[in-house]
Amino acid sequence: MAAIVVRRLVKHYGDVAAVRGIDFEVRPGEVFALLGPNGAGKSTTVEILEGHRTRSGGEIEVLGFDPETAGRDFRERIGIVLQTTAIERELTVTEAIDIHGRVYAGRRSTQELVELVGLEEKAGARVKTLSGGQKRRLELALGIVGDPDLLFLDEPTTGFDPSARRQAWSVIANLTSLGKTVLLTTHYMDEAQHLADRVAVISAGRIVAEGTPDTLGGRAEASTRVSFSLPVGTAVGGPLERARADGDRYVLEADDVTRVLHEITGWALHNDVELIDVTVDRPTLEDVYLELTGGGQDD
């Protein structure tokens, strides 16, 4: 049975449609990312699945429950990390985990969690003295203190510096290795690529692409790009005539990379032309994402 089933989900705020008919399924043990720009409908979708919001239409099932009517049993089995930190400032790290853990019938130990999120040195410190990244990791600890089967992570690293993000990622990777199902929202491509088994790209309230990070938007089938620069004033000839100019670089789309490289390097050697800064790559997830979401002008 799927951990999450979403069918034709719709959410209106007055006249504004935030979610316009979304379908997806998350399998148990899977890390599923909703990737999209701000205002695309990610958080609205997640908050409906958490039971924080009601839906305007469609069907959803989370761990077999309808979150809108589910009660204590449902909340025993989910963990939520909200988008903004909200922890009593005057409690210490240990106290915060303790008081939040008490409400679950089955819970993980405070000590274990402090270690898992790497806050050993701050265990006795007040929440108000923590840095943004440390608070976020504490939030993560609170999200999993009830040992949930399903964890919601709403933009877990927004506003982090790169090292704090790496740290948070390793904590999340730790969790997923325990077999937890995770629904993640993010607007960072690298985060989705790093953490998720599957990604749905959401834009203007609709899912515009879905797949693994490697195959998303036809990346697996996309032809490889060979690109390079030439010294100023070089006369282009031979196989290079097939290349299109992209700024001061030349780009060749190729299905048979070996042959193309052989041809252009052969031509270059023969004509004594230096090929500068040769790169071989496929469209990045970012390219796909920007194309799918219309240039990312939202952010």
Partner: peptide, 17 residues
């Protein structure tokens, strides 16, 4: 303050009645 800080919302997502 607890409501506007989001503390109440987080409590609402736990089994605490």
């Amino acid at each position: 303050i607890a409501r506007d800080d989001g503390i109440l919302k987080r409590v609402r997502g736990t089994p605490l009645p």
